[in-house]
């Protein structure tokens, strides 16, 4: 008897003839498909009618099914409580590890993100400071350069002749190491 006669759908790419001639000997492959319950009802009916009248076919079928039945002798390993327990423990540990590992990873990722953001901000601030320092004119520098003039501004205003003042400047009067200082 087929193992799974309730599966009538034939395989779509089955190369075996769907409608063999009545005199066609059935191949072992067809018999195996019959035993496996993989033939449609029509094919099953045809094979069973041939089996009823063909002792040689029955012998071949018995040979194939007998070997299959012998597989029932295979020992089925029994599962102990230990396997169930260790499986559940192992999965619980893995779940815990996944959970903990996930938090660590998230924390590390957040820390890395914060540090990256802080680094970018610091660099931008430094770059801006340098640019502003270069671009903005320094008023104090000019004051320092003209310090000697500023200190004597009231006296120098008394002099109307600019050429005279230039002469004083050339003589080094307004330099920082002038003899007056």
């Amino acid at each position: 008897m087929p193992d799974k006669q309730d599966k009538p759908d034939p395989l779509p790419d089955d190369p075996l003839p769907d409608d063999p001639l009545p005199d066609d000997p059935l191949s072992d492959e067809q018999l195996v498909a019959y035993l496996d319950g993989e033939l449609d009802k029509e094919s099953v009916g045809r094979i069973e009618s041939q089996l009823a009248t063909d002792p040689e076919l029955r012998r071949r079928l018995d040979s194939l099914s007998g070997v299959w039945t012998m597989l029932d002798e295979l020992e089925q390993p029994q599962v102990g409580r230990k396997l169930t327990g260790t499986t559940l423990e192992m999965v619980a540990l893995a779940a815990q590890s996944d959970h903990g590992g996930g938090n660590d990873t998230t924390t590390r990722r957040q820390l890395r993100r914060v540090l990256t953001f802080a680094g970018i901000m610091s660099f931008a601030f430094l770059l801006g400071f340098i640019c502003v320092a270069i671009a903005r004119p320094d008023g104090n520098r000019r004051l320092l350069e003209d310090l000697a003039v500023v200190e004597r501004l009231d006296e120098l205003r008394q002099i109307d002749d600019i050429e005279f003042l230039r002469g004083l400047h050339r003589s080094g009067l307004f330099s920082e190491d002038s003899p007056d200082d």
Binding site: L11, D13, D36, L64, W68
Partner: peptide
């Protein structure tokens, strides 16, 4: 493919 399985089981038997 189911066809390959069919061949596999046939050869195995």
């Amino acid at each position: 493919s189911p066809q390959a399985v069919k061949s596999l089981l046939f050869r195995a038997r």
